[in-house]
Simulated assay, not measured.
Amino acid sequence: MTTRITGTREEWRAARLDLLGAEKELTRRSDELARRRQSLPWVKVDKVYRFDTEAGSATLADLFKGRSQLLVYHFMFGPDYTAGCPSCSSIADGFNGIVVHLENHDVAFTAVSRAPFAKLQAFKRRMGWGFDWASSFGSDFNADFSVWFSEDQQRDGGIEYNYRREPPMDGVPAGPAADGPGAQCAARAGTDFATFIRERPGVSAFAQEGGEVYHTYSSYARGVDGIWGMYQWLDRAPKGRNEQGIWWRHHDAYERG
């Protein structure tokens, strides 16, 4: 939280113009990073992945629905969850309005999770979402794109997430960590902490050209922050993110005031 100060309109304008210069530089830097993302080499996807969708069994190529580009949100919802990750759910609350625009700009969009399709559909109805959500249950897709890890990997230090190797997980959280952000999210997803964090969030991009599918980009952890619409608004609010721990909920779990 920033320290509050007061001033005259003239002082505000001078400070705002100084900030504007920094914001413009950030915009230029963001544009350059976007160009660098788009210049990454394309990697051909040779493995055949199967997904359960509203249209039935589908391949990765099918998820493009005739378009040349595909964006995937790796949604944390494992087979043992009873509800979607509350963080992923708050991100997904912003998907409904953008999908129609993406689809009319040659970009398909889908969320993908490991939970069985019926479980995803039930939660989707609860949340009132309309975007495509495919189940990768029984597929290697999540493991291959570094958003799901086995219990053995977790125990033995075999998890490489966000391009970094994680240390072995030694037991379950204890003390203050037992009620920390991760444990709170796990409880709201209806599972234990260790099971919960074997699933991970991320965004992946794919291209289809000449009958072949290519992986072009993936981002994880704080790399997903830019599509978390709630935070983009809070960063412009007077008190910023102003948070202590996990304050957000599934949108139907807030007290209505």
Rank of each mutant, 00 (worst) to 15 (best):
T2A: 13
T3Q: 11
R4H: 08
I5E: 06
G7H: 14
T8M: 08
R9P: 00
A14D: 05
A15V: 03
L17A: 14
D18P: 01
G21T: 11
A22R: 15
E32L: 15
R36A: 15
R37M: 12
R37Y: 08
V43S: 07
V45G: 03
D46H: 12
K47Q: 13
V48P: 01
Y49E: 04
R50C: 02
R50W: 12
R50F: 10
T53R: 11
E54V: 07
A55D: 10
G56N: 08
S57G: 12
A58N: 03
L60N: 03
L60M: 04
D62G: 04
D62R: 09
F64K: 00
G66D: 03
R67H: 03
Q69I: 00
Y73V: 00
F75Y: 14
M76S: 08
F77G: 01
G78T: 12
P79G: 05
D80T: 15
D80F: 09
Y81T: 07
S87F: 13
S87A: 14
S89G: 08
S90K: 10
G94S: 15
N96Y: 09
N96T: 14
G97H: 09
V99C: 08
V99Y: 10
E103G: 08
V107D: 02
A108H: 03
A108W: 01
F109D: 02
T110A: 09
A111G: 06
A111Y: 00
V112S: 02
V112I: 15
V112N: 02
S113N: 03
F117K: 14
F117W: 12
A118E: 15
A118M: 10
R125E: 12
R126M: 06
M127E: 08
M127V: 02
F131K: 12
A134N: 00
S136D: 06
S136N: 06
S136Y: 03
F141G: 01
A143Y: 13
A143D: 10
F145N: 07
S146K: 13
W148H: 07
S150L: 06
Q154Y: 07
D156A: 05
G157V: 05
I159N: 05
E160M: 07
E160Q: 08
Y161N: 08
Y161M: 09
Y161K: 11
Y163C: 05
Y163G: 04
R164M: 12
R164H: 11
E166W: 15
M169W: 09
M169E: 13
D170W: 02
G171F: 11
G171P: 08
P173M: 11
A183M: 05
A186S: 08
A187V: 03
D192P: 00
F193D: 05
A194Q: 07
F196P: 00
R200L: 04
G202R: 03
G202D: 07
S204D: 11
A205P: 00
Q208A: 09
T216I: 15
T216F: 06
S219N: 11
V224K: 07
G226W: 08
I227T: 07
W228G: 04
W233R: 15
L234H: 02
G240T: 06
G240M: 09
R241T: 09
E243Q: 12
G245C: 09
G245I: 10
I246K: 06
W248L: 13
R249W: 14
D252M: 07
R256H: 14
